[in-house]
Amino acid sequence: MTRTGSARWLRSWLLLIAVPLLVFGVFYCAPIANLLRLSFSVAEGQTGANADGLDIYAKLLGDEYFLLIVWRTVKLSLLTTLACAILCYPVSMVVAQSKGWAQTCLFIVLLMPLMTSVTVTTYGWLILLGQAGVVNSALMGLGVIDRPQRLLQNETAIVVGLVQVMSVFMVLSVAAALQSIDSNHVRAARSLGASPWSAFWRIVFPQSLPGLRTGCLLVFSLSMSAYATPGVLGGPRLKFVSFLIYQQAMQLLDWPRAAAMAVLLLIVTTGVWGLASAYGQLKTWRRRQAEAAVPAFAQAGRQGAI
């Protein structure tokens, strides 16, 4: 390629990425930068002797109540992710194997919660799980329990509600990964002596891991910032970080504190995810190291090649 040619190529390339860069910068980076800036500013009327920018963070990190809520948010988000992964994997397999009409119908059913507002779907759970709700009546009718149980305003209810809202993201990413696996791989494994279960476990499951990872990332980060579902199903006692942020910003009008909480939520979310993937990387690396004990014949071949 000539120099002018490559220059032209570079220019058109820059033009091409300029638009997405601009959109990304204006609508994504700028608000985050603003949030950061805001979190370091000091709220009006809160001038104190040591009221510098980091003061808010220090106070938040020393606040047991705040840390408890952060811990609950992380714990329930992880539980939601785990439950989604376990419950949605079989569903994804059905979706990936279905064809034509059946698949379209399954997708419609899965996407339904996304088309309705999260608040509406969550209120559906109130009807199901309430004191006089469907589940309690059914269990009483069957004689399993003799008086209504408290199924709402606890952590289980939050996880149940979150799993329902989030499952579509898990199913879509896992099903996409499963669908891209060549069906001949399973046949090859079977012909080489693998039982159906063994072929799944050794051939299909490992190849679906990238999709599972994406699904977990989506579900986890969306759960971390969930607002309506934990608010409605958990009640006022079991708050999530997002509820605290809302309270600070909208009710107490303490914007810097709200911004600092949001920044901390972002850091915790990426931190937990970063730790999880680092652990995964470490395991792969260890396995690679173990495998690097190359068989003798391969080494002989290598030397022969040189």
């Binding site: 791989h185 090859a188 693998a194």
Partner: peptide, 23 residues
């Protein structure tokens, strides 16, 4: 079942397992 037949198959698209080494 296929796994009990002891038949070697070479597939049209080879169907090598991409997540495994050649070994």
């Amino acid at each position: 079942p296929p796994e009990k037949r002891n038949i070697g198959i070479m597939f049209q698209n080879y169907a090598l397992f991409p997540h495994m080494t050649i070994f």
